[in-house]
Structure formats: C-alpha cells, structure tokens
C-alpha cells in the first residue's frame, strides 16, 4: 500500500503498524515526533496504530544542535 511521509508517497507493507514503520525507516523512537492524518500520535500508542492506504504521516526530528 501507499502512504505519504513528509509529503512524499512511499510504498510500505500492508497493515504495518506505526511502530514497525518507524523501525523500517530506521528511525529511533525517542528522536522523532509523528503526526498521522493531522493528529499527533504519542510514542506509547505507536504499536497499536495500524496504518492504512493513503495515510499521511509527518515525521519531525528531535535535534539538539544550536
């Protein structure tokens, strides 16, 4: 299925959970905030959230430089 991550369409395995997607993208959980269809999803719920075709994700990186 296709989902849209930061404005770009990506092919991902069907019924993948948000948690598994973060893993697939090789991102570390405590370095990102994730918005799914315009709603922020807290980390503790990532495993329960199953993604659907055409879902829109925005992934914001937690960076520390300054």
């Amino acid at each position: 299925m296709e989902i849209i991550i930061n404005g770009e369409t990506q092919e991902v395995p069907p019924q993948i959970s948000l948690q598994d997607l973060i893993g697939l993208l090789e991102l570390e959980g405590n370095r990102v905030a994730v918005e799914l269809n315009q709603e922020i999803v807290r980390r503790e719920h990532w495993a329960e959230v199953e993604l659907r075709d055409q879902d829109r994700l925005e992934i914001v990186h937690f960076v520390g430089g300054g």
Binding site: E28, N30, A33, I40, R43, V63, G64, G65, G66
Partner: peptide
Amino acid sequence: LFPEPPSGINTTC
C-alpha cells in the same frame, strides 16, 4: 512530545 532525550550518539553541529 519528547518524553526522553535521545540516547546514544547524537548528531550535532
């Protein structure tokens, strides 16, 4: 939003 600081090696300037 970010309950814990990132662990391990962080990217910095």
